[in-house]
Amino acid sequence: MNSLILRTTAPLLLILLALYSVFVLWRGHYEPGGGFVGGLLLAGGVALYALSAGPSKARDLLRMLPRTLIGLGLLLGIGAGVAGLFIGEALFFPIWGAYIPGVGATGTVPLFAICVYLVVAGTAAEILLTLAED
């Protein structure tokens, strides 16, 4: 899309959206938000950038295939689920780490939120970029 305004602002918006998506992901533990919305926000940023700079530039910027994000997310997600088995509990038994001031609770549940974030962002970005390239 050949809009000067979009071309100029898209990189900035991408950074903002990426940061905001992480914020929404983090916020989801206590307030409305979470991995799903966060992932969509990130994908939205990527889509915006792809519309202005072209999908190949967007891919270069990501530095890894969106598919890698999907795989990483699923792997971590299964890991977060299986972790419970190793302490003799059921699948997806929550294991909590230390409470870090300023960050919040740590453990398998927040980890799982990150997995959802990665898979959703990866999938949405993959679909959008693939279609945009075609």
Binding site: G28, H29, G34, A80, Y99, V109, F112
Partner: peptide
């Protein structure tokens, strides 16, 4: 320690298997 956001607690903890 569970998420105070009930929706996400269900999605990410109680019914994490479904979400997976």
């Amino acid at each position: 320690e569970l998420a105070r956001n009930l929706i996400n607690a269900i999605l990410e903890n109680f019914r994490a298997m479904d979400t997976l």
